[in-house]
């Protein structure tokens, strides 16, 4: 399987935080979610991959052959977008269109106008232009998305795109992801970060979990759903079940948590029910374990 990005040992050292070494893959033709709590290093990793921040060491191989992010060929292929403050706040749609056209070779003004209409934003060619600062956070995000989707890119990299969107808009975002991937069947990929995967599960194919600047688990969602199981039981059996589980939450009457599927038989002996976890449940289990390990 081809990879859109192969991350080989990327490391970024800050005064009080170190990212890495990161070894991971962003498979080609799919939507990959970078899942982790705030401060896990998701934004730092994305910044390094897109050339926003320099790295301390390591390498990333893009599309199987390109390695230098500071090259126009690669910059044109990657559609990067952050979630807040992506453009200066006094910019209007008109200025955004002009700057996007100057900043990249593949910006399509017609497509931009279409997307603005579709996202219920103003016309980029209207006489009266509104500054970004006057828009709600949701509309700001829609503007950023319209700008980056109006480019003909091969890899979309979005840093927390869902954070300022309401559930309906997040659902729309999932549709946009599928549309993007479908347009160049198999040649386009998406990487997006989130600290809440709940309503973007249905557009996620591959997941990379991060905590404390490290990757703690990664894989295709369907494979992860076979590797782990969700376990429920009565609280009196919690202590017996815990050693076989990754992590679990116990309340007054019951407990629930994630375990490796290979421990299923063992766990069923403690009067538990097991089922296939959702990506959300998996995230909670895996990230909770990382948190407990880090203490």
């Amino acid at each position: 399987m081809k990879n859109a990005i192969e991350i080989k040992g990327i490391k970024k050292k800050y005064k009080d935080f170190t990212l890495g070494e990161i070894h991971a893959e962003i498979p080609c033709g799919f939507a990959t979610a970078l899942i982790g709590a705030n401060g896990a290093g998701k934004t730092t990793l994305i910044d390094v991959l897109c050339g926003v921040t320099g790295k301390t060491s390591g390498e990333a191989v893009y599309f199987g052959e390109l390695t230098e992010i500071d090259s126009d060929t690669l910059r044109n292929k990657i559609g990067y977008c952050s979630s807040a403050n992506f453009f200066p706040m006094d910019w209007t749609l008109k200025i955004i269109a002009n700057s996007m056209e100057l900043g990249f070779d593949n910006f399509d003004r017609t497509k931009f106008a279409e997307l603005c209409r579709r996202f219920k934003l103003d016309e980029p060619t209207a006489k009266k232009q509104k500054k970004l600062i006057k828009l709600s956070d949701g509309n700001k995000m829609r503007t950023y998305l319209a700008a980056v989707l109006a480019r003909d890119t091969e890899l979309l990299v979005l840093d927390e795109p869902g954070s300022s969107l309401d559930p309906l808009a997040r659902d729309l975002l999932c549709d946009l992801f599928r549309e993007y991937l479908s347009e160049r069947d198999g040649e386009r990929s998406i990487l997006f970060s989130t600290h809440n995967i709940a309503d973007m599960e249905n557009a996620t194919d591959y997941a990379i979990f991060m905590a404390n600047g490290q990757v703690i688990e990664q894989g295709f969602v369907e494979d992860l759903k076979e590797k782990y199981i969700l376990v429920h039981g009565d609280s009196e059996n919690a202590d017996k079940a815990k050693p076989f589980m990754l992590s679990c939450t116990v309340n007054k009457t019951s407990f629930e948590g994630i375990a490796f599927a290979e421990n299923a038989d063992m766990l069923r002996a403690f009067d538990t029910a097991t089922e296939v976890p959702t990506l959300q449940q998996l995230s909670v289990g895996i990230l909770r374990k990382a948190e407990e390990d880090g203490e």
Binding site: G29, F30, A31, R178, E179, E201, D205, V221
Partner: peptide, 9 residues
Amino acid sequence: AQDLKISVI
């Protein structure tokens, strides 16, 4: 995947 609103995988 697009029609059924599910992931490609």
